[in-house]
Nucleic acid binder design. Structure first.
Lengths: 112, 112
DNA sequence: CAAACATATGAATATGTATTCAAGTGTTTA
DNA sequence: TAAACACTTGAATACATATTCATATGTTTG
């Protein structure tokens, strides 16, 4: 999804969506949570595996996953004792990649 | 930018980018700031115009714009007494639209 | 059923941050 | 230059929230 047409005053994003969008963005606004999301992007991964891979406490990972699940950004699936989490859909990945593109955008010479 | 290929363990997003990305996402994670960004998306707009349009105090808008400018999400341009702000590049718009697509994604029947 | 394992949860704390208010800087104009 | 206008900035406050620790829930296996 790249650039679209534009409406008169500002955007095609309806005002009612703003709180939902903000909630989702703030989910990704924490480094621990963003890393957790990245872990879940491509394939289901267990809580303990995430914790180990990111060197975070299991408790912390679980707390974050609860938020991410409530925000419908990840989906949980139980397999025996373990619970595997995976990203809910591909849009999250698109969002992250677009933002990465923004980061690597050449920034002109500004005077801060 | 849509979906890309995927690397073995998790993503093609390098670990060093995570803090930068998280900072940008948390910029968009506040409703006031997200609304301000939307105001600046398509054309330069003055601080007072934003404040009026969103019914926020000029001071608050200015505080937020300072953060957004520091994060290189908007660019400032002085025109006489007024200062006009505009989104730095198109990626921000893409990010928002991708996220809006996520919101409107049909969510299966889950048991929270 | 008891023990071991994996995850979830609640309370407590510490840190961050959105907002307001008052005052400051910069720009035009009378 | 003084006054009016547009914006910025700093301090203060109130509120949110990331993390930890201890404990609880759920699941398999002996």
């Amino acid at each position: 999804m790249t650039i679209k047409n534009q409406s008169p005053t500002h955007s095609l994003i309806s005002e009612e969506l703003v709180p939902q969008l903000a909630d989702l963005f703030s989910m990704m606004g924490d480094t621990s949570r963003l890393r957790i999301i990245l872990c879940c992007l491509h394939e289901p991964i267990s809580v303990s595996h995430i914790a180990e891979q990111l060197d975070l406490s299991q408790s912390l990972v679980s707390h974050h996953l609860r938020l991410l699940k409530a925000a419908r950004m990840v989906r949980a699936e139980r397999r025996g004792k373990q619970v595997f989490y995976v990203a809910a859909d591909q849009h999250v990945q698109c969002v992250i990649e677009d933002m990465a593109a923004h980061v690597s955008e050449p920034h002109g010479v500004e005077d801060d």
